[in-house]
């Protein structure tokens, strides 16, 4: 039976990427996070995470830690241009008193540059303002709009700033020791408990594929199909001419 063959247009269904939805907000210059793990010698069993987002000379930080001793936990960002930019090592414990004081750790992490307080001043002068820090075995808070010096903003993004959370629990002789920062306080109140270097977040995506299962178009079938359609058109047209003639 003769039938004219209409070639319907073929529509390819291409995957469409959604348009980029720009948000009119200033993006951060960078972010960094620190894994807080026990400082050598002092025996803390705590751990935690500190995250810092830098925008110009302003930072926002989040501090979360658990497994700490009871009591207040002063927490700071430390930095020193000539420091080692790391958490203390065993060799930093110099006076064989069985504890690593904040001062003994300075060659490793440098001086206090930001006090991670919950309210009020965030400068080094608030370093021991224990009533404005977290307290107890578990702490977690976030704070924004903290102004820092430009070299601190840079140090944070370059992996040179260190977060130290202080406050441990001592027994025996160490429990009698006085703080190197303020002799009116026990050493246990100010000795470093957990520490971590702020490390820049990864940038961009991940190269996690080699294409072995990637979708392909079967060129052979396409060619066969094209020939078939052309042949159909040819015989159809021939049949139409024959019908008319």
């Amino acid at each position: 039976m003769r039938r004219s063959m209409r070639l319907a247009p073929l529509v390819l269904a291409l995957p469409l990427a959604l348009p980029f939805i720009g948000v009119g907000t200033a993006y951060a210059d960078g972010s960094a996070s620190a894994n807080l793990t026990p400082v050598v010698v002092n025996g803390s069993t705590g751990s935690g995470t500190a995250m810092v987002t830098v925008t110009g000379n302003t930072i926002e930080f989040t501090l979360a830690a658990s497994g700490l001793a009871a009591g207040p936990h002063a927490a700071h960002i430390h930095f020193g241009a000539s420091a080692r930019h790391e958490c203390p090592a065993l060799s930093d414990e110099k006076d064989s008193d069985g504890r690593l004081s904040t001062t003994e750790g300075a060659p490793a992490y440098g001086a206090v540059v930001v006090s991670l307080t919950k309210t009020g001043d965030t400068s080094p002068t608030s370093g021991l303002a224990v009533d404005r820090f977290g307290s107890g075995p578990s702490i977690q808070y976030m704070r924004g709009g903290v102004t820092v010096a430009p070299e601190i903003a840079t140090a944070i993004q370059k992996g040179q700033a260190v977060v130290v959370v202080h406050g441990v629990s001592y027994t025996g002789a160490r429990a009698q020791a006085k703080s190197d920062l303020n002799p009116a306080l026990p050493a246990s109140a100010t000795d470093p408990a957990i520490c971590g270097v702020l490390s820049a977040s990864p940038s961009g995506g991940a190269a996690t594929g080699a294409g072995g299962t990637a979708p392909t178009q079967n060129e052979g079938l396409l060619a066969l199909g094209g020939v078939g359609l052309l042949a159909a058109a040819g015989t159809g047209a021939f049949a139409a001419r024959r019908a008319r003639s």
Binding site: M5, A214, A223, G225, G226, G228
Partner: peptide, 22 residues
Amino acid sequence: TVALGVAGTAAVIVGLQPSAGP
């Protein structure tokens, strides 16, 4: 004609379908 046309169209459509990927 119809057979060629149908087969041809089918081959093109199948040829354009992606083979299974992730």
